[in-house]
Design a protein around this nucleic acid. Structure first.
Lengths: 207, 207
DNA sequence: CCATGTTTTTCATCCATTGAAAGTTTGCAT
DNA sequence: ATGCAAACTTTCAATGGATGAAAAACATGG
């Protein structure tokens, strides 16, 4: 009937507001006092909900920093599925990396400052790092799979795995280094892209 | 004075025995009731120590399954450092993978059954998987670094990262698949080696 | 056997996470 | 409007991992 933005009821809007309040509160508190030092009770209080309610929005304390992971992965997979007809695997992967790197700078709902903060947090808190790697691994698996499907007969599972591993490996390490030396998003993005190009050149042999 | 094996006092021997008892108990309980379902209290009880004591041997519940991670990494790094004078980076990495894969079958202190069990546990419990990936990442970083040093002037940081990423990426995915379909250690090892060879052939271009 | 340094146990506490029951709010149909 | 049903939130209680501190048990060297 109505345009979808107005169609959602109060319920939905409230939920969005609460989710947002929780993310914001968490990010701010983490920045102020550190991740470990911030309790869920504090986050919940800052967002004006009960502690228990936090868990109906996020499955864990870590999750509040990864709430958009699913969405991001879908975007990447879609990109692979819609490859250009003449695009080589290596080029496609580079475009993919570009997408990842670019997009990290233009979050829908986070400011640049928040994005950087989140990155720094994830990089510096081991359990968060572990979680990020877990998500990345999952993404790699799915990408490799998608890549096989996108190039049927041309790219075996192992080739795909190697290609994805090489590119993400290079980018991961390069970006990591850039982030931890406190580089700007622009620099990080540049470094990552150079790494991708470099790794890709080694992959051209895959066709 | 005496040969080192007899030199260690009762204290040291007891500590080894307790550590071992904890690992064994944990492994057995995890196998019987599952990881999440097993409490530290149960593990400690099975090893005849207090719960608190568990934490003077391992930093966390997860750690009891990764107690030898440090040692393994050192072995790999040593291997890179002692590369043959005419060995190419790709060949060296393949030898490395071989080492990893082989050795997983011949643990110093775990039986084959225990090794398989541990693998299955790590693969099937998300937090353990995350932890394993974290450790792997650390290893990758250090390997890339070591690789650069082993081939000064010949391999830049990004090349090294790409090479390590490609090989470990391929092996990781292949081994993962093999493990989760319940393959034997021999099969896993074979799969991993084929993956490594495949990825390496793509890397020869690095020299 | 004693003095000493270690390790283990006890005890107390914090916090993340989860289940269940009770209380509110929203959406919808009459 | 009114009121019912579904969806959410709060409250309450409990579990289990992790950590600090002080007391108790133990090993070592003299």
């Amino acid at each position: 009937m109505q345009y979808s933005s107005a169609m959602v009821g109060l319920r939905e809007r409230k939920k969005q507001r609460t989710r947002r309040a929780l993310v914001d509160a968490a990010l701010r508190l983490f920045a102020d006092k550190g991740y470990e030092e911030t309790t869920l009770a504090e986050i919940a209080a800052a967002a004006d909900v009960s502690t228990r309610t936090f868990f109906s929005y996020f499955a864990s304390k870590e999750d509040v920093l990864f709430y958009d992971a699913e969405e991001r992965m879908e975007r990447l997979l879609a990109l692979v599925a819609s490859r250009g007809p003449h695009e080589s695997p290596a080029d496609l992967l580079v475009r993919l990396i570009d997408e990842i790197v670019y997009r990290s700078g233009e979050e829908e709902d986070l400011t640049l400052e928040e994005t950087r903060l989140r990155m720094r947090l994830i990089m510096s808190v081991p359990p968060l790092q572990a979680r990020a790697l877990f998500l990345l691994f999952d993404t790699q698996l799915r990408l490799a799979e998608a890549l096989c499907e996108a190039y049927p007969g041309r790219l075996g599972p192992l080739d795909a795995a190697a290609a994805v591993g090489a590119l993400t490996g290079a980018v991961k390490l390069a970006a990591m280094a850039a982030i931890s030396r406190g580089a700007s998003l622009q620099e990080i993005s540049d470094t990552a892209r150079r790494a991708a190009a470099l790794a890709a050149s080694g992959l051209r042999s895959l066709g």
